[in-house]
Simulated assay, not measured.
Amino acid sequence: MLILAFDTATDVASSALLDDDEVLGERWSTPRTLLEDVDALLRQASARPTDVEALVVGTGPGSFTSTRIGLAAARGLALALGIDGAGVSTLAALAAGAEGALPVIDARRGEVFVPGVGAVAPEDVAASGRLCVGDGAVRYREVLETRGAVIPPDDDPRHRPRAALHARLATAFGPVDAIEPIYARAPDAEQWRP
């Protein structure tokens, strides 16, 4: 099965094309260039969009706008191609890329997203003795390390979500418009609503 997978929840967008479990190509860029990356992956594999049989999209948590970019692209592609898809948590994919790691995503506003808790202050992360990966671990390295975390160098690939891992974690495919994002808190605009 030819699967197109992507995640745009963080500042580094990831996309991948897999034939069953074989990675045909993988790219990292920014959420705004997602469709360019998809086109490049298809060309690299000598595949046409109509060859894609399923989609996997990252559901966050992460940037509200970036997460919406990924979901909107997945819905548009699924509708145009008549295919199903699956959603996979960005935190789950980060954790799968580093066995035993605690994924930490920058939530902005001085907070991070971690599994099971939502958005918390970096000093409230139970990081003692844990390998922490993700852009939140990089941004709040000093705070997390003083709490006992082990954090790989900033350029370590374990800090980036890998769309290929999203595809491998996907279990149930269905209508893409039923995939729900994981926001973990209200969008920034909500705090200004009267």
Rank of each mutant, 00 (worst) to 15 (best):
H166Q: 13
E190V: 14
P175Q: 09
G148R: 13
S29F: 06
G82Y: 00
D19H: 05
A163P: 09
G58C: 11
A92Y: 04
A47W: 10
R48K: 15
D37L: 09
A86V: 00
P194Q: 14
A149K: 02
P187C: 06
D135Q: 07
L55S: 09
L102G: 00
P115K: 08
L4K: 03
D177L: 01
D39K: 14
D156I: 05
S14W: 07
V150P: 00
T33S: 12
E53T: 08
F173N: 13
A127M: 07
I3P: 02
S15Y: 12
V117A: 11
P157A: 14
D156P: 00
L81M: 08
D7C: 03
R43Y: 06
A101I: 10
G129C: 00
A178F: 13
L91S: 02
G118M: 04
R160Q: 11
G76V: 02
L81Q: 12
V125T: 10
G97E: 09
T65V: 09
P103N: 01
A163Y: 11
V12W: 08
A149N: 04
D188G: 12
L131A: 04
A16F: 06
D177I: 05
D51G: 01
D177A: 01
V125L: 08
A121Q: 13
D11Y: 14
L165E: 13
G129I: 03
R185D: 05
R109W: 01
R43P: 01
D155W: 02
V52L: 08
T10K: 07
A80I: 05
L42F: 09
G118R: 02
V112L: 03
A163I: 12
T65Y: 03
L79R: 15
P122H: 01
D19C: 10
G58M: 08
L18D: 13
T171G: 15
R139S: 06
A54L: 01
V125R: 09
P157W: 09
I3E: 13
P194F: 05
G116E: 00
V125D: 11
L2S: 07
A72R: 12
A78H: 04
D39L: 14
S29G: 15
F6L: 12
S66I: 05
E36P: 12
